[in-house]
Design a protein around this nucleic acid. Structure first.
Lengths: 207, 207
DNA sequence: ACCTGAACACCGTTCAAGT
DNA sequence: ACCTGAACACCGTTCAAGT
């Protein structure tokens, strides 16, 4: 009633950072990362592109906040497993699900992770079970980073192929892989890689 | 003598695909991936941007050829180790060295890998020792992909931080990490992650 | 065959000026 | 405090036309 929201923008009142972020996330879902420009975002909000720069220093920091939102979306582990192996595996799956829940989510998080801006929370989530199990610092760090890169790489790869597929421009080989990925949800593809790392870690801490 | 090459461009004769690729690689080294545009490349070659499109269909395919060049740069394994573990580890290190030899090499290869264009050779190089050791298809595939993502992620992360560092714009935390990376060449950081995967694989094939 | 010239439809960002 | 308007310095790509 008080705040009627016509399809695209809330015109009446002034905008807050959260409004812009919400619009950005919606636009990301609609057009994908390559077409998520400051100008399109401004148009969606019925404002001038320059207006965005009062709320965010630049495009990069806006994207860092989007990345934070994706990472904060990671579900807590309800399974309450006792062993650190399955707890870590669950954390990896939860991260994967969060990335998959947003179009081009893996690339968004990867970019800001590399700049050291956000996304450290993702690493912490994977490290938590390892630290709580009392695994030594260097081993836990290496294992957690490896799992993070593995999940990001796998999901990023998958999402890029999905994007290429939706445009109809992809090599036959890639097409087949996407078809295969669609045919079976196959969470195994990711899980088995993480299991290798966990197996290696288990072996190492016994030595 | 016959072909005097002034610093920037070979003006006299017409250009071949190889000339353009060489210039692109040089420009990549000079300005980095974000500033490697078709227009700058054309300027370096003393030609119009549109002229590039006679040689390459678009920017993406040109970048795929750059990626091929980086991946083809992977050195063969001279160590002649007998066990598949160290042979795979050597392949991973050789890939890492190739990526590091080119500015933003990891991101270039990652991009084209995702599109299914090139970079499959990198995966094959890692898979070779596993296949030759007679490791079953699904396990070898998962392990090789995991190692590939691990190396790409680690080097990409490092190179992004190097880029941010050279611009002087980076969070203090990221700065510290780059400083740390510069202080010790530390090939261990990569190697130990791969070792975890190999340890897990070794364990699995014995079961 | 190989490339120019001009155009089209875009970008991110800055900054004075408005309200 | 929050945003507009106009400008600056760029993009990738197409396509007729030149040589």
């Amino acid at each position: 009633m008080s705040n009627s929201n016509d399809g695209n923008a809330a015109k009446a009142s002034r905008l807050t950072r959260a409004d812009i972020l919400a619009a950005a996330l919606q636009l990301l879902d609609e057009v994908g990362l390559p077409d998520l420009s400051m100008r399109r975002l401004a148009a969606k909000l019925d404002m001038q592109p320059s207006g965005l720069y009062w709320h965010f220093e630049n495009k990069q920091t806006l994207f860092a906040r989007i990345s934070d939102h994706i990472v904060d979306h990671i579900q807590p582990d309800r399974a309450n497993a006792t062993d650190w192996q399955t707890r870590t595996l669950n954390a990896a799956c939860a991260l994967r699900d969060s990335l998959l829940a947003f179009r081009d989510g893996a690339e968004v998080v990867s970019s800001t992770l590399a700049l050291g801006l956000g996304a450290g929370a993702a690493l912490d989530r994977i490290r938590l079970p390892l630290d709580e199990a009392g695994i030594a610092q260097p081993e836990a760090k290496v294992a957690a980073e490896s799992i993070l890169f593995l999940v990001l790489g796998q999901v990023w790869h998958l999402q890029q192929r999905m994007a290429a597929d939706s445009l109809g421009v992809a090599s036959p080989m890639a097409q087949a892989n996407v078809a295969e990925a669609h045919a079976e949800p196959k969470p195994d593809a990711l899980i088995s890689g993480v299991k290798l790392i966990l197996g290696g870690l288990e072996k190492e801490i016994r030595a």
